[in-house]
Design a protein around this nucleic acid. Structure first.
Lengths: 232, 232
DNA sequence: CCACGGCTTCTTGCATGCATCACAAGTTAA
DNA sequence: TTAACTTGTGATGCATGCAAGAAGCCGTGG
């Protein structure tokens, strides 16, 4: 071909491939263990193998893809152990976010959190688990971004990608009573943040993450439990 | 050329380039802001541009290199603000390591830590700051690896690369009295870990990181203070 | 003297071709 | 029948060529 006429596109070809494949994995369109052929992805996104290779490399670093040299790339599913490890990290990072946010004083994220809790209350009242799942995501995201620490946000986002958090949360919220429980914990965290109790907010958030972890791991485990890396 | 006769090399060409450039940046052979030409690096490592590009991409994700699209790659120096952010993260991650290590009970890392403190005492007695710096690195590394959480280790290593920790620590330890102070803090942390006081160990470690941060940032700042991204 | 516009040059981004290696199916011998 | 060997097919890893864009430079106009 060698046309490259359409120039670099909106934001480069490899970024398009990167976002596309990442979303496909997180949304479950590519299942764990499934091989990701470079030529197939190149054809699918209508680019050559080069940007596909670079995108796969980045996804490997993000933990979504496993590249076995000279063999190929595969969708990576974290093992059960890794999920526990990721939750341990999540606990620390979100606790850190709550503490830093409390220390910042009144910033616009607090209003957004207030509004989030209000809308969450409505969703819980209607038992709309799907909608609440989205609001949960927003709540945690606001806590972390509100900490005003870009490094924290970067590491946190990587973590969440690996956890395929969306699906996990949706699964955990099916347990009856969990919605109200979760909302109460959110409210408690926000109260402590507003009260500028940094350490209190940190530990409330950590407790919340742990209880959320329990709810998630005791619910169905859509992860399969086994890593894609078979070590036989 | 197109020879590729020597086959794939010991561990692939791009890995060689990756390690080489990373070490060069961390050890200060490539200075912040300096442009990293693909062709120059390719010639230096005797490979083509392709593996160099992939290595640079990974280094960008690790935070050591900034790639301005269509412009070039540059050695990235974290801004003062980013250094503070990185230390905040370091504090949380090492605190987490200490807590998890305490919960694990008697593992071989504890013996290694004991021995490390012993050797550290000798280094302090001889006022050998250089040797002590290496032992500090080992101590913190043992705390983190001893937590038995591979995700933690991964994120932590990335962090340390960005901080160019080696140089920073060496600089901070020039302040008189800091060596003994630091050693006492290490010993305190290890005592709490051995006593299985997880939360205590976590906060002792966090306190230690904060005091280490103060010592580092008040010492000379070899980082230049300004980011490589000039925003004028 | 300073500002602005066109141009040159060097850079990256992507496409493509070739060599090498991993895996599996088919074949043969015990 | 089973195990080991051979060979074929497909994949990745790397080298290289071409086009588009960005930074710097020089000349010109004010």
């Amino acid at each position: 071909m060698q046309e490259a006429v359409g120039l670099i596109g909106p934001q480069g070809a490899q970024e398009r491939v990167l976002d596309g494949v990442r979303r496909a994995i997180i949304e479950g369109r590519h299942l764990p263990g499934q091989p990701l052929s470079e030529v197939a992805l190149a054809a699918e996104h209508d680019v050559s193998r080069t940007p596909v290779r670079e995108a796969l490399k980045q996804l490997q670093i993000e933990g979504l893809v496993e590249i076995r040299p000279r063999v190929g790339s595969f969708v990576r599913a974290p093992s059960r152990r890794e999920v526990v490890e990721l939750f341990e990290l999540k606990e620390m990072l979100e606790g850190m976010g709550a503490r830093l946010l409390a220390a910042r004083g009144p910033v616009h994220e607090l209003d957004a959190l207030e509004e989030n809790i209000e809308r969450s209350g409505e969703a819980v009242a209607r038992a709309d688990a799907q909608r609440y799942a989205g609001l949960v995501h927003e709540f945690h995201e606001l806590i972390v971004t509100g900490a005003n620490n870009t490094q924290l946000v970067t590491h946190y986002r990587t973590l969440m990608n690996q956890l395929a958090y969306q699906r996990l949360v949706s699964a955990s919220l099916t347990r009856p009573g969990r919605l109200g429980e979760s909302l109460a914990e959110h409210r408690h965290v926000l109260d402590l943040v507003r009260g500028k109790d940094g350490i209190g907010a940190e530990f409330a958030m950590r407790d919340h993450v742990r209880s959320s972890e329990r709810a998630t791991l005791t619910a169905g485990h859509p992860l399969g439990g086994r890593s894609s890396t078979k070590e036989s």
